[in-house]
C-alpha cells in the first residue's frame, strides 16, 4: 500500500502536475497542515511528512505555509482517530481537540489542510465548535484550484475569498 501524497509529490517533481502558487501571490492566504498519525507517526514517518510539505508549499507558496509546532512525527493527534468520532463522547473528543485548536490558532493560518478523513472531520468540527477561526480542506481541492480545474460544486470547504477563484 502506498499513499497518494507520495505520488502527488512525485508527479509535481516530474512536471506531470504543474501546480503553482500564483493564485495566492496577492491573496497571501496562510496555510498549515495536519500530519495524520496513521500516515506519519504510525506508518511512513517523516519522509511522507516532508512530501506533504513539499506539495503544500508548491501549492500555496513557501512564504504562505506556516508549520504547526510540534510537527511531523512529533505532531499531536487531532482527536478524531481511534474511532473517537463514533465513540459517543463528543465533549471529551472536543476537549482532546483543544490542543489541536490551539496549535492551529498559533500558526495564524486561514486554512488547515487535513489529508485524512478522520482528521478532516475532526478539525472541521473543531473549527465549527470553537468559533470558525479557520477553514479545513482536503489537499485534492487545493491541487485542482491551483490547476484551475476546480468545479463549482467542489468548493464546499473553501472560504469566501476562494469560492469563485478561477471559475
Amino acid at each position: 500500500m502506498e499513499s497518494i501524497i507520495t505520488w502527488y509529490a512525485r508527479w509535481i517533481r516530474e512536471g506531470k502536475l504543474p501546480v503553482t502558487s500564483d493564485w495566492n501571490a496577492e491573496l497571501r492566504l496562510k496555510f498549515t497542515v495536519q500530519d495524520p498519525c496513521q500516515l506519519v507517526r504510525k506508518s511512513l514517518g517523516d519522509s511522507i511528512a516532508n512530501d506533504l510539505r513539499f506539495v503544500v508549499k508548491k501549492l500555496v507558496g513557501e512564504e504562505n505555509f506556516v508549520d504547526m509546532h510540534p510537527n511531523k512525527s512529533n505532531n499531536y493527534c487531532c482527536g478524531g482517530g481511534g474511532g473517537a468520532l463514533q465513540a459517543g463522547f463528543p465533549e471529551q473528543r472536543r476537549a482532546y481537540g483543544l490542543r489541536k485548536r490551539n496549535q492551529i490558532l498559533a500558526t495564524g493560518a486561514h486554512y488547515c489542510i487535513a489529508p485524512c478523513h478522520n482528521c478532516h472531520s475532526q478539525i472541521h468540527d473543531l473549527a465549527e465548535y470553537y468559533g470558525k477561526k479557520w477553514h479545513t480542506i482536503h489537499l485534492w481541492t487545493l491541487i485542482c484550484l491551483s490547476l484551475g480545474i476546480l468545479g463549482e460544486n467542489e468548493r464546499a470547504y473553501l472560504g469566501d475569498e476562494l469560492a469563485a477563484l478561477g471559475l
Partner: peptide
Amino acid sequence: TPWVWMCTMCKRCQHV
C-alpha cells in the same frame, strides 16, 4: 475506565 475510548491510540506517548 471509558478513557480507553477517548485515547485515540495515536502513539505519540510511545514516540516520546
